[in-house]
Computed example of a mutant assay.
Amino acid sequence: MKSKQALKRFLITVSLLTVFLFSNVSSAAQYVYTYDNNNRLEKVVVTDNQGTYEIVYSHDDNGNRLSTSKNIIMDLKPPTTPQNLMSPTQSTTTIDLTWSPSTDSQSISYKINLNGVYFAATTNTYFTVQNLSPHTSYSFTVKAIDASSNESPDSTPLAVSTLSSIPTTPNLVVNAGFETGNLTPWTIWNNATNWSVISTGAYSGQHALRIGTQVGGQQDFFSGFEPNQTYELSGWGRVGTSGQAANLEIKGNAGLKQIIQFTSTVYEYKSIQFTTPADASWVAVLFWNGGSSDFYLDDARVLKVNL
């Protein structure tokens, strides 16, 4: 009787340990138990919709369990989907990509798709796409693949553009990166006070502009823009909370209006081209935060484009 009770307690212990080691195993899993010559549990093989795994037990000469290990025999479970795909920097012919790592029980590599077609593979969580065309929009996705060739779903697509060919004209925006430590010559609408030139958290340099909720402002130009010419408005921006949006805008007489919207919580570069009207007597660069979290703006530019 005592030996039966001891065996029952032992099997209960094994069951609990199996549940602990295979907490993600399907309830429909199949278990195969192997015992040694002394009727001690030696191995448990588990097969479910994630693959086949084994728990191997070792014992000393007195029957005490020394160790328990988990080994993969056949893995059917894909890695997790890569998250936070973004592009921290771009040039006229290159786009840098970064993303958060996937997780898996095996080693992982990543496949990068460009405009829906396989482009490259890497074991890193960053990649530089080269030999691209200037001022062109591209769409990227990334998926993870493990050593058993299980593939994750594609990441959320990322659309990003290369920069335009570098023009010979200077940036028309004054104090574009707020490196003076103040706002001048930018102005804030309605004398709002929920803004500041910050000295930490800039995209580049030492300063950036923090724009509070429901705050806007602009920089006016009454000269410097040629009529019927193509320019590019660009900048680096981010919002404080996911799900929010804020704008960088070009506006002028004769109906000129183009808007860039920032929605990422990390700095992202965005640009848009516009053509000045025949009467380019007034042009303004505007920022506007209509969301419920802070908006951060840095390195605003307006450059004449050499097409």
Rank of each mutant, 00 (worst) to 15 (best):
117 V>R: 10
71 N>F: 12
69 S>E: 13
39 N>L: 12
85 L>I: 04
112 I>L: 06
27 S>H: 10
129 V>K: 08
99 W>C: 03
75 D>T: 03
61 D>Q: 15
107 S>K: 07
43 K>P: 01
130 Q>P: 00
61 D>N: 15
106 Q>N: 12
111 K>P: 00
34 T>R: 14
93 T>H: 09
88 P>N: 07
52 T>P: 03
118 Y>C: 00
103 T>A: 11
39 N>E: 03
28 A>V: 10
38 N>W: 09
104 D>W: 06
68 T>G: 08
56 V>M: 03
98 T>P: 02
65 R>C: 11
77 K>N: 08
93 T>K: 06
128 T>V: 12
126 Y>I: 01
121 A>I: 03
120 A>T: 01
65 R>L: 13
79 P>V: 05
49 N>K: 11
119 F>C: 00
87 S>C: 11
81 T>P: 05
113 N>T: 06
52 T>C: 07
52 T>K: 13
96 D>M: 13
97 L>V: 04
80 T>D: 02
46 V>A: 04
57 Y>W: 09
74 M>S: 09
51 G>A: 15
30 Q>V: 12
98 T>R: 14
32 V>Y: 12
91 S>T: 15
122 T>C: 05
111 K>N: 14
113 N>L: 15
72 I>V: 13
82 P>N: 02
79 P>Y: 05
106 Q>S: 15
35 Y>F: 14
31 Y>K: 14
27 S>E: 07
110 Y>F: 03
104 D>Q: 00
43 K>D: 03
127 F>M: 05
27 S>F: 14
45 V>C: 02
69 S>A: 14
38 N>Y: 13
69 S>R: 15
58 S>R: 15
108 I>Y: 10
109 S>A: 09
31 Y>N: 04
128 T>M: 01
110 Y>V: 01
59 H>F: 15
125 T>P: 01
102 S>I: 04
50 Q>F: 10
94 T>N: 13
39 N>K: 13
117 V>E: 04
75 D>H: 14
79 P>F: 08
113 N>I: 00
35 Y>C: 01
87 S>H: 05
102 S>E: 00
106 Q>V: 07
31 Y>F: 15
42 E>A: 15
75 D>C: 14
118 Y>K: 08
128 T>Y: 01
53 Y>Q: 06
96 D>Q: 15
34 T>M: 12
101 P>S: 10
117 V>M: 09
32 V>E: 13
102 S>F: 06
127 F>P: 00
94 T>H: 05
38 N>T: 05
42 E>R: 13
123 T>Q: 08
43 K>A: 09
83 Q>Y: 00
51 G>D: 01
102 S>D: 03
82 P>H: 02
85 L>N: 05
91 S>G: 13
125 T>G: 06
72 I>W: 04
64 N>Y: 13
42 E>W: 07
54 E>A: 12
104 D>Y: 10
72 I>E: 01
